[in-house]
C-alpha cells in the first residue's frame, strides 16, 4: 500500500497506537471508512483519537465544526484536516 503519504502513514500509526487496534497501519486504506463498516471505530474511539491528535499536532477537533463528519470519514480526509490546521 505505497499510496499512503508520509503524514498519512504517521496518522495511521497514531490511530492504531491510540486505539490499540490489531491491524498493521500500512494496511489501512486511505479512502476507506474509519467508522462503521471500514475500521469499525465508534464515537468513543473518535474522541480518543481527537484527544491524541490535539496532543500530537495541536489541532483541536470541535463538534461544532460543520465539516466534522467529513473530516472523520477516512484516513485521507482526517490527514488533510490535520495538515491544514496543525500547530505543531
Amino acid at each position: 500500500m505505497s499510496e499512503l503519504s508520509l503524514l498519512e502513514q504517521d496518522i495511521a500509526k497514531l490511530i492504531v497506537e491510540t486505539l490499540k487496534l490489531k491491524v498493521d497501519p500500512a494496511t489501512i486504506q486511505p479512502v476507506a471508512a474509519l467508522f462503521g463498516d471500514g475500521l469499525g471505530l465508534d464515537s468513543i474511539d473518535a474522541l480518543e483519537l481527537a484527544l491524541a491528535i490535539s496532543q500530537s499536532y495541536g489541532y483541536q477537533l470541535r463538534s461544532n465544526d460543520p465539516e466534522i463528519n467529513a473530516i472523520f470519514s477516512s484516513l485521507r480526509t482526517l490527514t488533510k484536516a490535520i495538515e491544514k490546521n496543525r500547530t505543531k
Partner: peptide
C-alpha cells in the same frame, strides 16, 4: 455520530 462523544467532552 462521529462527533457525539466530542460533544460530551466539550
Amino acid at each position: 455520530g462521529a462527533d457525539t462523544m466530542l460533544q460530551v467532552k466539550e
